[in-house]
Design a protein around this nucleic acid. Structure first.
Lengths: 97, 97
DNA sequence: CGCTTATTTCGAAATCCGTCGAAATACGGG
DNA sequence: CCCGTATTTCGACGGATTTCGAAATAAGCG
């Protein structure tokens, strides 16, 4: 995968992981997400950009505000690949040899 | 889990992920692992320490050399938790209250 | 066009991270 | 003991990352 690196870099930050967790409940505006953290808007905007760059998130503008949403396809692919890559068993399937 | 943060920090580096991949084939000595990369021994030793600190790897000394082995329990737990925690299940729910 | 709200971009400071060479530690064997 | 091999610790350097405030952009509204 191309973005393997970007994805893990993105996941390395706790704030960004928390943003992803919030987005798992549905899309949120940049402002809503920012209000959940004690960080300035510019800092949060930067985190959003990192997540987007990694393909973990997509955004859509509606009027003056921007909605962010989880893009699960990349995460699923990366995690599955990691599992495979490391020769681990997929937790989604509980098969035993 | 003990420390979510350390695990993701550990996985953020491509060299460390490659070390994990190598270890998925069985344990290796520090020297064997180091020889697979174009990095100095001190750098590799540092990476081993990070992986160990995160609980992704365990070590055992035999004579003058140190064997490293993958500890899959932490990885399985973390990835499963990530999968679950982010709600990466197929029927995606939309919107919010 | 000016005004307000929402968000991003820019530039700079502080901190973190990966890497190195030199030195230190750990072991086993003369 | 001292030597050789294997590995780790130390101290430092450079580059990346996080954060901020100020300024810039975007969009709706009168």
């Amino acid at each position: 995968m191309k973005n393997f690196d970007l994805v893990f870099k993105a996941l390395a930050d706790p704030t960004r992981r928390e943003v992803l967790r919030m987005l798992s409940g549905g899309e949120r505006t940049a402002g809503e997400l920012s209000d959940a953290f004690e960080l300035g808007r510019p800092s949060m905007s930067h985190h959003f950009a990192v997540l987007k760059e990694a393909g973990l998130v997509r955004s859509r503008r509606e009027g003056t505000q921007v909605y962010y949403a989880l893009d699960t396809t990349v995460l699923e692919d990366v995690l599955a690949r990691l599992w495979d890559h490391l020769g681990l068993k997929d937790p989604r399937k509980e098969d035993r040899p």
